[in-house]
Design a protein around this nucleic acid. Structure first.
Lengths: 126, 126
DNA sequence: TGCAATATGGATAAATTTATCCCTGTGGTG
DNA sequence: CACCACAGGGATAAATTTATCCATATTGCA
């Protein structure tokens, strides 16, 4: 997350959550890992729009924040499995409720987002 | 949110929520508005680290996504009040649970984030 | 030997986001 | 008159994030 050097004031607890969850693919990654231990190559297949690079980076951040854990199997070719930590699992209700909210309001959300993207797509004609 | 032109696949509903909520100050803004109708100048005072510019921009996005509404009072100096829409209010449980999660794990979160920031602050010594 | 799959990292480019500075218009106040 | 508070927007710079390309290491297989 873009944080000014001089940002001392975190107001509500929400801010902390934001910092840790900020990242384009983190929700999805957490969601997939929550559905079962998973390898990064599987994540790449499940999210073809994300480059493997970014997936690795965001996984690493999640790991540094201790939301996910890495298990390395000393085999060839290398195998690394990602799991939710205990801490990571405490996040599941949050993910679920957010997901439920999004599903319940999918129509409205889709409209809003489409409006958004259309508005900024093609540039003026004349 | 940074979205590749060729990003068709939104997997779980979560993605939609992410898109609409992506923005450094949006959670805070929603939270403050939820605590009572509010003017943008108040938001600036409550979040001194955010420039008024960004606050306006993110408010506008939230408005475009129909999560908040603007009420303009035709007085001088101008007065504009921001409110949660009905749709915006449906988000309150999500905010609450996320906030509760963050508070319950504040210690762990703070550590993780500090670790993060310290790691990337000053550059090497020798 | 050459290549495939795997996990990961560096360097660099492209895109976006946020910050900073400045400007408008209005009515009241010093 | 100069200036303030207020809401908002334009232009531009700074910072960050994401994408893209390439490289490493290892084992097995053709």
């Amino acid at each position: 997350m873009y944080v000014k050097k001089t940002t001392p004031s975190l107001n509500c607890g929400l801010d902390l959550a934001c910092e840790v969850l900020y990242g384009k693919w983190k929700f999805r990654i957490l969601w997939f890992i929550h559905q079962g231990n998973i390898r990064s190559s599987e994540l790449q297949r499940k999210m073809p729009d994300a480059s493997s690079r970014v997936i690795h980076i965001q996984l690493k951040e999640l790991e540094e924040h201790e939301l996910v854990a890495r298990t390395i199997y000393p085999v060839m070719p290398p195998k690394v499995e990602y799991t939710l930590t205990d801490f990571g699992r405490t996040l599941i209700p949050v993910l679920s409720i957010a997901g439920k909210w999004a599903e319940e309001h999918q129509e409205q959300l889709t409209e809003a987002i489409l409006r958004d993207h259309i508005g900024s797509s093609s540039t003026s004609s004349i």
